[in-house]
Design a binder for these strands. Sequence first.
DNA 1: GCATTACCCTGAAAGC
DNA 2: TGCTTTCAGGGTAATG
Length: 273
Amino acid sequence: MPEMPEVETIARKLRREIVGKTVSEVRLSGLSLRRPVDAAFAAVLRGRKVAAVHRRGKYLVLQLEPRAFALIHLGMSGRVFHWQGEIAPTPHTHGLIGFTDGSMLEYRDPRRFGLLSAHDGPRMRDIVEIKALGREPLSPGFDCEWLWPRLSASRREVKSFLLDQREIAGLGNIYVCEALFHAKIHPARRCHTLTQEEASRLVRAIRKVLRGAINNRGTTFSDFVASDGEPGSNQRFLRVFQRAGRKCRRCRAVIRCLRQSNRGSYYCPGCQV
DNA sequence: GCATTACCCTGAAAGC
DNA sequence: TGCTTTCAGGGTAATG
């Protein structure tokens, strides 16, 4: 499941591969993703040049020239490939963006929880999906001074807060579980009960797990691979995620899994209070 | 404002 | 072996 480090890995790769290329054609499967792909998607992209590749939260953003933006969200199972030359679409290929040099960008998404959208003209920060996103966890503004007042004002469970993209953009289930482990905070703790020291630990833990995951080119289970098809290696460093029933590497307690908002929360009952 | 539930979807794993 | 069922989860919407 692609979260911020996986999307960042793809963005870095695409930055080297497709910036400067001009879109010659766009083919869509016609099947609906998270929502139907707008009929204008192809028209907005065709003939435009890729000026830059950005990442915002879990969105991959292609900045086009003349000014327009294409948003790609990978959902649960989305993958992006850059191919040299013509390729045959798979049953799960929902978007093919061809460039004038003959290479192609393929969007593949078996579960179709992802999103493709195009926006002609606006500033990036005014795009509705981007506008809704909270702070970037690796930006200079993501610190305890920013986070603690927000935690103090919320009675939600901290796991739910951290997954909320309107608060912090880019965290998903894997890295929230891992960050809470490193910060020694139980996922069901109510935000307002966290001390300033715990909030500070949480900030450091979030930055640590994300930076580590980016360095490892993301976490690969079954779904995620970078745009060249190479898997990431961060799964080797996970401490709690999908390790229920196994022993904590720090305290030897047995890792548990509880359900929060219908998602699995993995934690160590020995380390996390 | 927040929690809960359902929904979208399909591959993998488990169960029979 | 082969079929059916269950589970996984990001984001959104409806409901309480």
